[in-house]
Design a protein around this nucleic acid. Structure first.
Lengths: 227, 227
DNA sequence: AATAATTTTTAGTCTTGACTAAATATTGTT
DNA sequence: AACAATATTTAGTCAAGACTAAAAATTATT
């Protein structure tokens, strides 16, 4: 008893989760992704990672040399990008159509991203109007796995009197997102830096026509598009 | 590494598939559902069924006495109805929002029905306008697991000159559904019996202002609501 | 009622994906 | 260069869920 009919390439949920983790880690690390890094990201043990990494390597999704970490192959990267694409499209769906807030979508999208159906994802994309970014401002890969990133800067890098549009976050934990909500900070909002405090790196900003003081921690987790 | 956070009761996909199978079989059989019947429905082996049935029994989802078949407990029935509810709501979504035809929805809904999220299913229900029937005319259980069936009759039971509205099918294989599509037979269409042939039990019907001859096999797989 | 046919269960095996503990590589430090 | 610390892999287990083959129970047939 198992799903999987005609479909060209099928990977297990577990394999997909590993691919996605490696994909995300590669973006940051730029060189080989270590076993330990994967283990930490997936909250599993290094030995389990070694097992899986050998399997993914046999399936030509990654390049793996013992003790050397892994790199996605072109095929692996495309596969991973497709999972990320699904994840982010579902997030858009949940927020735009089903009244989820941006801090509630992650767990559900984590499940939905594993649904296998070409048509489903194509139609969903079209139904949502071909969105380019998810509710956290992260770019949605196109159906070839390419993503166009916009030039975004951390709020902390803005100079006094500069302003920008809020376009994303680094930390997308629900705690942080709920905190932003409480402060009235959401995607698309204009933010102007009124003052930068040297002694604690906090910034004073203008948003929603109100003055707000923002800690360094917040300012280094919020992306804006300069203008 | 596994999902499953706060949620009250969590069952594996496999457990859910068994529950659903037993639920469907109970509707037909009315008495205890046999191991073999479950095996056939799930295209698995009887020995595998025995294993799972013992597990479900321990979890109080079913009553199981060796060699006696199984019955859903109240809890089990509610759980199963909820899976069916999710399956059918997703089918409605696929057809109404994502341009799937009624013969394409099953495999995808089979996957989507296992997504765990209270809010998701509530919001989906609301987004779809609280539908009562899926694209095949099957009733959608409410959030307490109750379903109100409408009185429907097989087309084959209609007398000459009687008419009814097409409200459902027994066989929901894509072959049958595509055949119906080709003949212009869809849910909601009015059908009038013009003639009944005794020697092969075929019926001559009026639909879409056209006369059509329908074999016995079709007539015994199509539900209408008499009027 | 006895035997044959069928159904169901048990016992043992396999695969996937996790784990622990031990062994081996690599890296960092003096 | 040698040793310590850390990272990685190997070897051996485990649970879930499937399987086959054999045993046991039930049902059907005479």
């Amino acid at each position: 008893m198992y799903l999987c009919g005609i479909i060209k390439e099928m990977f297990s949920q577990s394999e997909e989760n590993y691919l996605k983790a490696i994909y995300h880690l590669e973006i940051v690390s730029s060189k080989g992704v270590t076993t330990n890094a994967i283990a930490k990201k997936l909250e599993t043990k290094a030995s389990s990672v070694t097992d899986m990494v050998q399997k993914l390597s046999e399936k030509e999704l990654i390049i793996y040399k013992k003790y050397q970490g892994v790199t996605l192959t072109v095929f692996g990267k495309k596969t991973a990008a497709n999972i990320v694409r699904k994840h982010r499209l579902w997030e858009v769906f949940l927020v735009e159509k089903l009244n989820f807030s941006w801090d509630e979508v992650h767990d559900v999208a984590e499940q939905l991203e594993h649904i296998k159906s070409q048509k489903l994802i194509q139609e969903l994309d079209s139904f949502l109007g071909f969105p380019t970014h998810d509710p956290h401002g992260d770019p949605i890969p196109d159906d070839k796995g390419n993503l166009k990133t916009i030039e975004k800067s951390l709020l902390s890098t803005l100079a006094k009197n500069e302003s920008g549009i809020c376009v994303g976050v680094i930390d997308s934990s629900s705690e942080f997102l709920q905190f932003l909500d409480k402060k009235g900070i959401t995607l698309g909002k204009q933010i102007t830096v009124l003052e930068k405090e040297d002694f604690d790196d906090s910034v004073s900003i203008l948003i929603n026509d109100k003055k707000l003081s923002i800690s360094q921690k917040i300012a280094t987790n919020l992306f804006v598009k300069k203008r």
